[in-house]
Design a binder for these strands. Structure first.
Length: 749
DNA sequence: GTGGCGTCC
DNA sequence: CAGAGGGACGCCACT
């Protein structure tokens, strides 16, 4: 049984038998003084509490660790989802988790979830149903995949010739390359697999080199034989993440052509959030088939084998299955994509053509001055030591400045500074925002802020970037991910080149290490205010449209409207506020958020917003319409027809629902911007290919393209680049592109 | 592996 | 009455 349930707003110090709690209100508190079994028996009540918005539990009230853990789980807003999904997702590490896990397993989640009535909207089953396009509901899934398929392993020229002939006769086939590494520039091919129809697949091993490996066809011969069909544009290729295969083949001088269907991108365009887009998950979700995973045949961790060390028989089944499943996934996705013209178009005119462009950019890489970064690391290291000493001096003891936990003890226990904010788990926050506030009254926070800033630069950038320079090319080759961000944006990994510092002077020094080779310059071109321009277009607001048509500084224009002054009367303070309002609108921010950002009262912030909507009524109308549309259809779209499903848009839980509404407002703008720059990248690359100009795209940062350009062709390339980026979409406002030139990335801005 | 924090657009 | 800013990646500490 539950001895006490404190609801939101209850005075905590009224709790019987729990003395000395200084909180004014309970943040949704479950105080169970009974045993776990008792809690379990009363689970229904506890769940009801959790939907009152309970989130955290003050530590002082915890009697047993296991209780605390259970309470925390139950009180988390995601409770139902997490409970329903899987008890194994409960992480271990707490002393009695095994016991907890047993308890959770006993709950019979499915029936329990069903009893929740309307809250069902948040269950995984409901999410899957909502997030699957309606066209899919009536659609039969592809035929079940048999589990006992035999695939050919090709080790002799007779069987090879047989398969080559079949590939030559096929109009399309799926294929996959197996390699020694994931790093594109250095990966060596170990084998290739093909599928020509569901269940008919084969693997050609040609690089397994473990002791006692069977004789295999020589790789050079195999690739020579395959080259004509791989380079044949009319031969349609299907694959999973073909950007990788294209790159690997290019290492062997083969230019993959006829890249028409990438199942990863089919899945992404079909439903960007319905599942992750790796093959194992796709097979499970859409074919109800469990694939052999790489870990299962290669092991994991440091002892994981590379593909060349795998037994040919194991590797053969794994690789051929990959090709087989890829083909089946394509047969599942494509008929459905074809039925939705907007999605088909996003797939065929944006995502597939972008694939080789990204491959080009990755392979081009970017030149980085490792020596300069090294100097900066040393310098930063010295300054960090000084700051460390200063901090120890103020605190009167040594501690790890990088540990939020140790820092919390020093600040809030030893120095007794006020706790201004807590993290989602209830520990006192030491975030920048908090330190800034505290720095007004105390000395230590300021030192910590400076330390954090510099430590970040050193550990993330100046120390790390030199380590990822490719030995052979001398350049940094990031990996762009095309199916990660739900809105349609790209992401960049290993290293992330989309979050290189720019705001502070010290940060910009890192950009100075991104350089052009001798005889070349960097050109950085970015869309000016692209998301606000898209907002003007989508909302059709006369005032906003006119501001852009007149070429006004939009934040200044907004300030003039909101504060009721002439353009000349706008102070820098007003402009700053207007800028925050503009960005806030794009993100669906509330008066509360705006107030916090601008350090003004909530009422004042609300006045700004009211005033904004008064002056730009079209924007308000658009916001209301898009919200309503999202509720009605369960998804929102970009201008190009890309969809983002919002499974939580009609959730009973208001927080989830409001979150989904914010996404509904933001996604069309962020996503349209992504569509536009992707289109621009395709057009720019096509133009560079045609003209054979001595210029290459080396980076994309959401609204910016960076090119490396021969000095002699600077003017021509810069002009052509701006033209093509501006023309990537025709909106009701012009798409302004600004392009700078320099010897390094900082200069080019 | 998770949480806290910080970098970018 | 609480909650109240969209999308990413990566580092460090800690378990």
């Amino acid at each position: 049984m539950i001895d006490y349930l404190a609801l939101m707003g209850d005075k905590v110090d009224n709790i019987p038998g729990v003395p000395g709690v200084g909180e004014k209100t309970a943040q949704g508190l479950i105080q169970g003084l009974g045993s776990l079994d008792a809690i379990y028996a009363d689970l229904e009540k506890v769940r009801t509490l959790s939907f009152r918005g309970a989130k955290t539990m003050p530590e002082k009230l915890i009697e047993h660790r296991e209780m605390a853990y259970l309470s925390y789980r139950l009180a988390t807003i995601k409770t139902d989802v997490e409970l329903a999904i899987a008890p194994e997702s409960i992480h271990c590490g707490q002393p009695d988790n095994n016991r907890l896990r047993e308890l959770f397993e006993d709950l019979e989640f499915k029936s329990w979830v069903k009893d929740l009535g309307d809250d069902n909207a948040n269950s995984p089953a409901a999410i899957a149903a909502v997030s699957t396009p309606e066209e899919n509901n009536s659609e039969p899934t592809s035929p079940a995949v048999p589990t006992d398929i035999h695939y050919d392993i090709i080790s002799d020229k007779i069987l090879f010739a047989d398969w080559l002939k079949r590939l030559q006769q096929a109009a399309q086939f799926s294929f996959d390359t197996e390699t020694t590494a994931l790093e594109i520039m250095d990966a060596k091919i170990v084998g290739v697999s093909f599928a020509i129809e569901a269940g008919v697949a084969a693997y050609i091993p040609c690089g397994h080199d473990y002791m006692g490996a069977p004789e295999q066809l020589p790789i050079d011969w195999v690739l020579q034989e395959l080259k004509p069909i791989l380079e044949d544009t009319s031969k349609i290729k299907i694959g999973q993440n073909l950007k990788y295969d294209r790159s690997v083949l290019l290492n062997y001088g083969i230019e993959l052509r006829g890249i028409e269907f990438d199942t990863m991108l089919e899945s992404y365009v079909w439903n960007s959030i319905g599942s992750r887009h790796n093959m194992d998950d796709l097979a499970q979700n859409y074919l109800d088939y469990k694939t052999v995973t790489f870990e299962e045949i290669a092991g994991k961790g440091v002892k994981q084998l590379t593909f060349n060390q795998l037994k040919v028989e194991d590797a053969g089944h794994y690789a051929a299955e990959d090709a087989d499943i890829t083909l089946r996934l394509h047969q599942f996705f494509w008929p459905q994509l074809e039925k939705v013209p907007t999605l088909k178009s996003v797939f065929q005119t944006i995502e597939m053509p972008l694939l080789p462009v990204l491959s080009h950019i990755e392979r081009n890489g970017t030149l980085v001055d490792a020596k300069l970064l090294g100097q900066q690391s040393i310098e930063l290291g010295e300054r960090l030591v000084q700051l460390e000493r200063k901090a120890y001096d103020i605190a009167g003891q040594e501690f790890n400045l990088s540990s939020p936990k140790q820092l919390g003890v020093i600040l809030f226990e030893q120095q007794k500074l006020p706790i201004l904010k807590k993290t989602p788990t209830g520990t006192p926050s030491t975030a920048e925002e908090v330190l800034q506030e505290l720095a007004l009254d105390y000395p230590l926070p300021k030192v910590l802020m400076e330390y954090r800033g510099l430590a970040k630069l050193k550990s993330t950038y100046t120390d790390k970037l030199p380590l990822v320079i490719n030995k052979r090319t001398g350049r940094i080759h990031t990996s762009y991910h095309q199916a990660v961000a739900a809105t349609g944006r790209l992401s960049s990994q290993d290293p992330n080149l989309q979050n290189i510092p720019i705001k502070t002077e010290e940060g910009r020094r890192i950009r100075q290490a991104f350089i052009a080779p001798k005889g070349y310059k960097l050109v950085a071109a970015d869309y000016s205010q692209i998301e606000l321009r898209i907002m003007a277009h989508l909302s059709d607001d006369a005032g906003l449209l006119s501001a852009f048509e007149k070429g006004l500084d939009v934040h200044r224009a907004t300030a003039a409207e909101v504060f009721g002054v002439g353009l000349d009367g706008v102070t820098s303070e007003m402009r700053r506020s207007a800028k925050a309002i503009n960005f806030g609108l794009i993100y669906g921010m509330s008066a509360f958020g705006l107030a916090k950002q601008l350090h003004v009262g909530r009422n004042e912030a609300q006045q700004y917003i009211d005033r904004y909507f008064e002056r730009y009524p079209g924007v308000q109308r658009y916001m209301n319409n898009i919200r309503a549309l999202a509720h009605e259809q369960g998804y929102v779209e970009t201008l190009f027809g890309r969809r983002l499903y919002l499974p939580e848009i009609n959730a009973k839980n208001k927080n989830l629902q409001m979150g989904a509404e914010r996404t509904a407002i933001n996604a069309p703008m962020q996503g349209t911007a992504a569509d536009i720059i992707k289109t621009a990248m395709i057009n720019v690359q096509a133009w560079l290919d045609e003209t054979q100009l001595d210029a290459r795209i080396i980076m994309q940062v959401h609204d910016e393209l960076v090119l490396e350009v021969a000095e002699s062709q600077l003017v021509q390339v810069r002009t052509g680049l701006i033209e093509r980026m501006s023309a990537a979409a025709t909106l009701k406002v012009p798409l302004l592109v600004e392009a700078g030139v320099g010897n390094n990335w900082d200069e080019a801005h």
